[in-house]
Design a protein around this nucleic acid. Structure first.
Lengths: 207, 207
DNA sequence: GAAAAAAGTTGAACAGGTTCATTTTTATAG
DNA sequence: CTATAAAAATGAACCTGTTCAACTTTTTTC
């Protein structure tokens, strides 16, 4: 029951994921061949496919780790949001944005997003979509919390409004990763620009 | 100068595009091999690549035709929008949605969107992005027109607001094409649900 | 501890998108 | 009309993701 086999399996999977995470970032997802990962992880090509269904699966696995982290960090902001709808929304979303390139390249984000659209039925797509939904839910939670506090009008449904805000931040992020030259501050500014009218409209007591 | 060569080139390109449009829809984009298109168009594989840089290019070309049509139809609605922000926005966007599956399958939309994200620098991606921008601009134009008419508050900028609305309709459309089982009416309902709070917030004279 | 079963690894073979040196076709020059 | 040049078509070869039948290693059984 010690599980020599289990131990070896875990070690191999880790080595593959480590190799992938590092090479995808350094060399570019496209450029990296499964053979390269196999070599770095000291396994054969076939074994890589024993752990991951496709090359895309390996990428999604690395992206998922990143998103899980950001989600956890977001909880803190939802629990104690800054004052005012605009400030609170920006705080949460900047949180997401500022961490986005810590472990992942723009190319990796692009490919992950493309995969989730392209092959929605596969484990890939399902997994990425689930992450997306969690992010959207967190935004909705924040808006609901702001409504509780009276900082957002109570006469609109937080659910759809949360989706709208999420769609906005998501689309802007897509534009960001599509443009290799776009710096983080431009991403922040574009977001602020679009969140401003939204939060203004959300605020109570405006004529 | 009559251009026998020109004529043949045009004919070949048309045959390839025709074959692609029909086979992509009937057999599925993935399933269709370049060799199949070549055979149907009575050219060699190499020749296909003489006209289109990649398989994705061929797809984008078919999608572009569809979008151009929808854009033209949208002009009419922008020129004479129905009364009320909600009705006007829904009229324009339903226009887009209702035509979306006329010549293209969900899979084709998915692949086109994925390609535009995945390879933003290529002619593919650039072309699709340009279409996206045109759609977004049309939505902005509609909102500006509604502001003129006093049906949308004048104290918010139509540009960013137009982007927000576009992002919303775009994201919902992505969810639609990702789910093969989702019917058109569900797409319409989801949109209406998210446009409602937005247009409510946009309307002037609300407390 | 040996034999049988189960689980996992391996790399050669396959598939389909893409490239490119060669050949064929069309246009131009004399 | 023939020769030369330019343009385009061709398909075999290449590359890389993926599959799978044969082989190894680990676990279980007795």
């Amino acid at each position: 029951m010690a599980g020599l086999r289990e131990k070896q399996k875990a070690a191999r999977e880790t080595r593959i994921l480590r190799a992938a995470s590092s090479q995808f970032r350094r060399e570019g997802y496209r450029k990296v061949r499964i053979e390269d990962l196999a070599e770095a992880a000291e396994v054969s090509v076939g074994t890589v496919y024993n752990y991951y269904r496709t090359k895309g699966d390996i990428l999604i696995a690395t992206v998922a780790m990143e998103v899980e982290e950001v989600l956890a960090a977001g909880e803190g902001i939802v629990a104690e949001p800054p004052d005012g709808a605009e400030a609170a929304l920006l705080a949460l979303i900047f949180q997401y944005y500022d961490h986005s390139l810590e472990y992942l390249s723009k190319e990796m984000w692009r490919m992950a997003m493309a995969l989730s659209i392209e092959a929605p039925g596969t484990p890939n797509g399902v997994r990425y979509s689930a992450l997306d939904s969690k992010l959207a839910a967190q935004v909705t939670d924040l808006i609901a919390a702001l409504q509780e506090r009276g900082e957002v009008r109570g006469d609109v449904d937080a659910g759809p409004l949360g989706r709208v805000v999420f769609n906005t931040l998501n689309q802007i992020f897509i534009d960001f990763v599509r443009d290799e030259a776009m710096p983080l501050h431009a991403l922040r500014e574009t977001l602020a620009e679009q969140i401003r009218p939204l939060s203004r409209l959300m605020s109570p007591g405006k004529t």
